[in-house]
Design a protein around this nucleic acid. Structure first.
Length: 282
DNA sequence: CTTACGGCCTGTACGC
DNA sequence: TGCGTACAGGCCGTAA
């Protein structure tokens, strides 16, 4: 579930159940996900009132009001969140690794089959300055992300543009799907060296990273392999993919401007699948 | 410093 | 049906 739009959707979904509420218990059903879980966090956080639930990059931050001990959740590749309330009480499922209970009777279940996800303690006051947040690039939907910024960030990069925009030090939140989609919208070949993009291409790319992410958020994210949002509903941005997971099918963008459409190609870059149209992305 | 690659895990889809 | 293989939304450590 997890690129920026999906994480944003989760945050919006759980915020009404957590913000201003008091934590009853944080329960670990295992000691490790990607990393060992912070052992003393459950005791430190019990009874604390939650001031804020935030998203930074692909991380969900839970920040209490009266203590400097907060935590983040990262969904990894396969992490999901379910909300259970007194109206729809918690029913355990396989791979429910972490539960967060509030005094109001809500249970937030963190389910992650592959266990690439994570939960770690962060200081409420200056989480910004602590890893992994301290080395992150700007939020793509903020005013700090614009063509001039991207120009200086990519100036010396010989790396291909696609892995470059997935580098969280350059810009956060862009994962494999939205990198492919943004490059397609921009007519940029994903294998081009990042430093080779001219000003016009950079302006275009910035705008299209923003538009594809914003549209995906507006659609409730993308639902792949039939998984659901926190509230049980389905995101539907996957129906708007132009290239992602469409290898061998005719490019709709080509088709619009010409009768002869090229097929979408699939290549591998930095160990990840890239989908693009070799004709309209140059 | 930069970039490329393998590994972490389980589930699912597909070919034989 | 059953088995083996490839691949999946992310990130990190190591090596070149």
């Amino acid at each position: 579930m997890p690129e920026l739009p999906e994480v944003e959707t989760v945050v919006r979904g759980i915020t009404p159940y957590l913000q201003g509420k008091t934590i009853r218990r944080l329960i670990y059903n295992r000691r490790n996900l990607r990393n060992p879980l912070p052992q003393d966090l459950p005791a430190k956080i019990a009874g604390q009132k939650i001031a804020h639930v935030l998203r930074r990059a692909k991380y969900i931050l839970v920040l209490p009001e009266e203590t400097n001990t907060g935590f983040y959740i990262h969904l990894g590749m396969s992490g999901r969140v379910r909300i259970h309330t007194t109206d729809a009480p918690y029913v355990p499922e396989t791979h429910d690794h972490i539960l967060l209970e509030t005094e109001e009777g809500t249970t937030i279940a963190f389910n992650d089959p592959r266990r690439f996800g994570d939960l770690q303690e962060i200081p409420v006051n200056d989480w910004h300055q602590t890893p992994p947040f301290s080395t992150m690039g700007p939020e793509p939907l903020s005013n700090y992300f614009h063509a001039d910024y991207l120009k200086q960030a990519l100036m010396r990069k010989t790396q291909a543009i696609k892995p470059a925009i997935m580098d969280q030090r350059i810009v956060v939140g862009v994962g494999n799907i939205y990198a492919c989609e943004a490059l397609h919208r921009s007519g940029i070949n994903p294998t081009r060296p990042a430093q080779s993009l001219d000003d016009k291409a950079l302006v275009n790319l910035c705008q299209n990273i923003q538009s594809v992410l914003q549209e995906a958020i507006n659609s409730g994210g993308s639902t792949l392999r039939d998984h659901r949002q926190a509230d049980g509903s389905l995101g539907y941005f996957q129906h708007h993919f132009a290239v992602y997971d469409k290898a061998g099918t005719p490019c709709a963008t080509c088709k619009r401007s010409d009768k002869v459409a090229h097929d979408i190609q699939k290549i591998t870059q930095a160990g990840r699948s890239t989908f693009y149209c070799a004709r309209c992305q140059i």
